[in-house]
């Protein structure tokens, strides 16, 4: 279920939430900071927009087993 967020790099800017065409990425509060999470993983189109636009390089793409194995 891509994308994967690396919280050590993420600054919580919310750009991925803003541009995700699936409306799949949302922000939530965690330990007094705002962090992204994938609310609708099944609806990701794997377009890579979030990874391309992330200013911190905090997003990686990992394809799920069904897509890699069928």
């Amino acid at each position: 279920m891509p994308p994967t967020f690396y919280m050590k790099k993420c600054t919580g800017c919310g750009l991925c939430d803003s541009i995700c065409p699936a409306d799949a990425i949302y922000m939530k509060e965690f330990e007094d900071t705002s962090v992204p999470y994938l609310k609708y993983p099944d609806e990701c189109w794997h377009c890579g927009s979030c990874r391309q636009d992330c200013p911190e390089g905090a997003i990686e793409i990992q394809f799920p087993p069904d897509m890699l194995c069928i």
């Binding site: 803003s18 995700c20 065409p21 699936a22 391309q52 636009d53």
Partner: peptide, 14 residues
């Protein structure tokens, strides 16, 4: 647009 016009549609990612 249902998304954000900076990345929406068929060619949003490229």
């Amino acid at each position: 647009d249902k998304g954000n016009i900076n990345r929406s549609g068929d060619i949003g990612g490229g």
